[in-house]
Computed example of a mutant assay.
Amino acid sequence: MIRLAIFCCMVFGMACSRFSSETTTGNDANPKPNPSNTVYFLLSGNDFVSTFDPVLAKFDTLRLSQQPLLDFAISANARYLLALTPDSLIQFDLLRERKIKIFNAPDEPTGQLSCNADAALAVYQCQVDQSRNICFFYLSNGQSYLMDEDALQESWHPLLSPSGQWLAFSRADGFYVRFITRQNPTQLHPTALHADQFSPGEFYLTAEGRIFDLTDMRLMPGDRVGKVRFVDNFTVIWAPESTGSVKLASISGAKEQTLYSTATPIVDFVVSREKQFVVSVNAENLDLTFTVFDFNTRQLELTSRLRIKTGQRLVRLVWPEKPDNLTHDN
């Protein structure tokens, strides 16, 4: 079991304190909003998904399997969590907090799991005849198929858009995107890239700091290297590679400003659905430090530290919408 050490401290010369319902922005009639819901993350080698409460600065675990998890994904409607093991695909209901189904996952899964908005369709990277391929898995009936029937054609790093219409992936000769219903993909870049995120309206796509316009299939201006997350269709937050800084900018790259900086490089970060808070993760020795920052008020809210095992790395970090604010079928 991972040992947890949680603390709030003085960081970057600013007082760090936990959220409370009494905290205000200086006007008692307008209470300061708290970040909603839970941040989910996976550490390599674990058979559970970890959670972080950005209000209480508390870590917990969601145990899903007796096997190490390769990856997990959360549907955009925040109802379902899917977890991938070396031989199975697990569907977990976040609203009812229970497992629904465990599917046999064909074609030797290796990771890179993503799903559409209601988790009816999942895609993941797999190994077939010593070649990397992409498996499409329909949870409604348990049916699956491979994207590449030609054993000589390798594809990897799949990312399915929330609408389920777009699939981004890489091949030896570049970075591609395709409509699910069409066979012929479009090359976006001559270098194989790891797709990160589709914009809320699915007009744009990020991959290793680059932003692609999907309306005319072109690379947007800007020389970013690192991770980029969308705040909305016009604004992004960017963490330059191998640095501890987090920046806010327009999607065109204009009006860039630094929000905050940390002493060690940021390995990943997520933006809240209410478009106000960012949680970043730094790694130093055997500690992961989680930082919660309000980028509207420009205030550092808290930091919490998690002790990890030697050799572990952060596989996935997700901050979904709060499911109990949504309407679901029974």
Rank of each mutant, 00 (worst) to 15 (best):
I2M: 08
I2T: 12
A5W: 06
V11K: 14
F12N: 12
G13L: 02
A15W: 10
C16S: 15
S17C: 07
R18G: 11
R18E: 10
N30W: 00
P31Q: 05
K32G: 00
N34E: 13
S36Y: 03
N37K: 05
V39C: 01
Y40F: 15
F41E: 13
L42Y: 11
G45T: 08
G45Y: 04
F48I: 00
F48G: 00
V49H: 12
T51C: 01
P54Q: 12
V55W: 00
L56E: 14
A57C: 10
F59H: 04
T61V: 12
R63C: 00
R63Y: 05
L64C: 04
S65A: 15
S65D: 14
Q67D: 13
R79C: 02
L81W: 05
L81R: 08
L82H: 08
A83N: 04
T85L: 10
T85Q: 07
D87Y: 05
I90F: 03
D93G: 04
L95Q: 12
F103Y: 15
P106G: 07
E108F: 11
G111Y: 08
Q112C: 07
C115E: 11
N116V: 00
L121V: 13
V123Y: 03
V123M: 08
Y124I: 02
Y124R: 07
Q127M: 12
S131K: 13
C135Q: 12
Y138Q: 10
G142T: 12
Q143C: 04
M147T: 02
E149D: 15
L152W: 06
Q153L: 15
E154W: 02
H157Q: 13
P158H: 05
P158Y: 07
S161A: 12
Q165L: 05
W166Y: 15
D173N: 15
Y176R: 05
V177D: 02
I180F: 01
H189W: 09
P190A: 03
A192I: 02
A195D: 09
D196E: 14
E202W: 02
Y204K: 13
G209R: 04
F212N: 06
D213E: 13
L214V: 03
L214M: 02
T215K: 06
D223H: 07
F230Q: 07
F230S: 06
D232S: 05
N233G: 09
V236R: 04
I237L: 15
I237T: 09
S242Y: 09
S245R: 09
K247P: 00
K247D: 13
L248C: 03
A249K: 06
S252Y: 03
S252P: 00
G253H: 06
K255E: 15
K255V: 05
Q257I: 12
T258G: 03
Y260K: 01
P265D: 14
P265S: 09
V267N: 01
S272L: 06
S272N: 11
K275F: 03
F277A: 03
V278D: 01
S280T: 12
D287R: 12
T291Q: 06
V292T: 14
F295T: 03
T297E: 13
L300G: 04
L302E: 13
T303N: 11
R305F: 00
R305T: 15
I308A: 02
I308E: 01
K309H: 07
K309Q: 10
G311N: 15
R316P: 00
L317E: 03
W319I: 05
P320F: 04
P323S: 11
P323L: 03
N325K: 11
N325L: 06
L326D: 10
T327K: 06
